[in-house]
Nucleic acid binder design. Structure first.
Lengths: 201, 201
DNA sequence: CTAAACATGTAAAGCGTTACATGATTCG
DNA sequence: CGAATCATGTAACGCTTTACATGTTTAG
């Protein structure tokens, strides 16, 4: 159900075609909530049939067409309801930590590879979050630009602060994952050291 | 696909009926990878038809029956392949951080509620992870008990170390989430303070 | 005898992934 | 005229959730 609100958030700032929305999505909210095109187009149709948005059919050239979506009153209300409702947390289901619990069944090399890959993966994410934060702060971020143009000046600081806050959380989480993977590598070294303490002497 | 390996991990230690497995699951791996009964029974059937486990039909009393599952050679190999294979990370899709990015659209009260609930949720999780770690270290943990009985003494330290490591990662993540929520509350206070600095004087 | 625990599922719906599929327009 | 970009989807499959559905055995 979150995709719907991520899309609504972008459309609330101003009408967009499915294609524009999809492009904008990929370089903004898509960092926090990934969705491929093949999910976005059908979801827009469903949102229209649910009365949250209306599609305005436009022509492009001779035969080209595109559908530009506008948020309805109902859509705006739904968005605010979502933004104000208590969150429902889903049950824990974490592939990486499940794997970690069974690292004893892996070879030393595989365990090491797992941990270095985990650190690498989260370093990459961390880079992305830090980039996003810099772009938001500098006003380059496309979502923030559109958003800031649409709201009174007083509220801009607030809008920027919450966007930065959200990405900060993801960055801090990535940092925690990196530290954890490094602890795991230390654990591997310690276990390897204990395994053959006599033969080493 | 992880459920299958979580189940295989438990069965590898010794045969269990679907019911026993389901109970044991809930108080062990289920903390890391939640799955309801209604998912476990069908998955066992699928695993059997895929040749990873075999079901041995037993009777209980007059009419009662139960199916006890054993891991096949194929199942054991599959498990090791899983434990040694590189992880595939799925795209980011995080409801809480998506919501945080749009906290500007929420009322101050709703934002505060969201953040306190987030902290509360992760404090609860943290308590659970810390509990699990204590139970693993003390040898009370049912999964670890069964597991330790099945492996040579030298490898026990290794097995315990990795279990603790996995839960430590979850605990550290929970701590990061709590810190983040607290930063968010500070942000709210700061924004509230700036909003009406003159009327306060 | 009755409640708790044992025991095992089916059905429907929603969400997400991956692969497939097609065509128009604009810019160089 | 060819490539990039614009533009919009369908189909199949798998995982997860939620609700429903049923019956047996054992301990008190």
């Amino acid at each position: 159900m979150s995709l719907r609100y991520a899309l609504l958030a972008l459309l609330r700032v101003g009408p967009l075609s499915g294609y524009e929305l999809q492009k904008l999505f990929a370089e903004s909210v898509g960092h926090v909530w990934h969705a491929p095109d093949s999910q976005i187009y059908p979801e827009l149709k469903r949102m229209e049939s649910d009365g949250l948005i209306t599609g305005e059919e436009q022509t492009r050239g001779q035969r080209g067409r595109r559908r530009v979506y506008h948020v309805t009153d109902r859509g705006g209300e739904d968005f605010f309801a979502w933004a104000n409702a208590p969150m429902e947390y889903s049950r824990v289901r974490d592939p990486a930590h499940l794997r970690a619990a069974y690292l004893e069944s892996a070879s030393d090399d595989a365990a090491r590879d797992f941990l270095t890959a985990h650190a690498r993966h989260h370093r990459e994410l961390l880079r992305r979050w830090r980039d996003e934060i810099a772009r938001i702060r500098s006003g380059e971020h496309p979502m923030v630009q559109r958003r800031l143009a649409a709201i009174p000046e007083q509220e801009r600081e607030r809008a920027v602060a919450f966007k930065v806050f959200a990405y900060e959380g993801l960055a801090q989480r990535a940092e925690a994952e990196i530290r954890w993977a490094e602890q795991g590598l230390q654990l591997l070294n310690r276990l390897a050291g204990e395994e053959a303490p006599v033969t080493a002497g």
